[in-house]
């Protein structure tokens, strides 16, 4: 049997747009993964703590509020402090191209915007989790 992947899907900050997060959570579930869904209004600290307790292989952050440039770096930093730097971080939502570039340099493995097919998203998770 192949490894059972565990993924955390979280919505950091005060952003109430949760459709995308739920769509992605369901797509990953349908792809056979165990998805821990934390719900809305998570602080970066809460996300790091949940990732640690749940021993996840990846984290998916969904942000449509425009606060990604403050929230994502704080999650990445928290993960490093907790010794979780090998957890793969994905980001989705409304992320302008130039910010996406910066976030990738900081260590985010993939970033997806509106209209991305869930097939593409699932494939990216699979690829990165398999170590590609």
């Amino acid at each position: 049997m192949s490894k059972q992947y565990r993924v955390l899907i979280a919505k950091p900050g005060l952003d109430g747009h949760d459709r995308g997060a739920k769509v992605v959570a369901r797509a990953l579930r349908d792809a056979g993964m165990e998805v821990i869904y934390t719900g809305l209004r998570q602080t970066p600290e809460m996300i790091v703590e949940a990732a640690l307790q749940e021993d996840v292989d990846a984290i998916g952050l969904s942000i449509l509020s425009g606060a990604h440039m403050t929230l994502v770096p704080r999650v990445l930093e928290g993960l490093r402090e907790a010794g979780l730097e090998d957890v793969k971080v994905f980001v989705g939502g409304i992320i302008p191209d130039e910010d996406a570039e910066t976030l990738r340099k900081m260590g985010v493995v993939e970033i997806f915007g509106p209209g991305t097919s869930t097939v593409t998203i699932v494939e990216a998770f699979r690829r990165h989790l398999a170590g590609g």
Partner: peptide
């Protein structure tokens, strides 16, 4: 059907975050 799962119980347990005397596992 898929072997996957959505584990959503944590959504209701947000008050417990940040407490070293608590450990939650889904």
């Amino acid at each position: 059907f898929t072997g996957g799962a959505i584990l959503g119980d944590r959504v209701r347990m947000r008050d417990l975050a940040g407490d070293p005397g608590i450990f939650i596992r889904s």
